[in-house]
Design a protein around this nucleic acid. Structure first.
Length: 79
DNA sequence: ATTCTAACA
DNA sequence: TGTTAGAA
C-alpha cells in the first residue's frame, strides 16, 4: 500500500517468467507466434497484463499436453 | 540492473 | 530452446 499505482496489473517479462514458469525466450517466441498480444512501453518493452499471464500459463499447459504452436494457435483462435 | 531485436547453433 | 551482440 504505497499509495495508488498507475499500474493496474502489468508486469515486465521478468515477472511473467516467474508467473508462467517459462523463460523470456519462450514468452517472446510465443508472442511472435501470435499466441499472446502484450502492450508495449515507450522503449518497446513488453507489458504483460494479468490476462496475458494467464494466457501464457494456458499455452504452457497446452504445450505440456503435446500440442504445438499450430495446435495452440488453433485453440486460441477457437477454430 | 533489465529488456529488446536479430541471428546462429 | 539457448545464447550472444549491441542498443535503449
Amino acid at each position: 500500500m504505497t499509495g495508488d499505482n498507475p499500474t493496474t496489473s502489468i508486469y515486465s517479462i521478468g515477472v511473467a517468467e516467474k508467473k508462467t514458469k517459462l523463460t523470456a525466450r519462450r514468452v517472446r517466441y510465443y508472442e511472435k507466434a501470435g499466441l499472446v498480444d502484450p502492450e508495449r512501453t515507450q522503449g518497446n518493452q513488453r507489458l504483460y497484463s494479468q490476462e496475458d499471464i494467464e494466457k501464457l500459463k494456458e499455452i504452457k499447459s497446452l504445450l505440456e499436453q503435446g500440442l504445438n504452436l499450430a495446435g495452440i494457435k488453433r485453440k486460441l483462435k477457437d477454430k
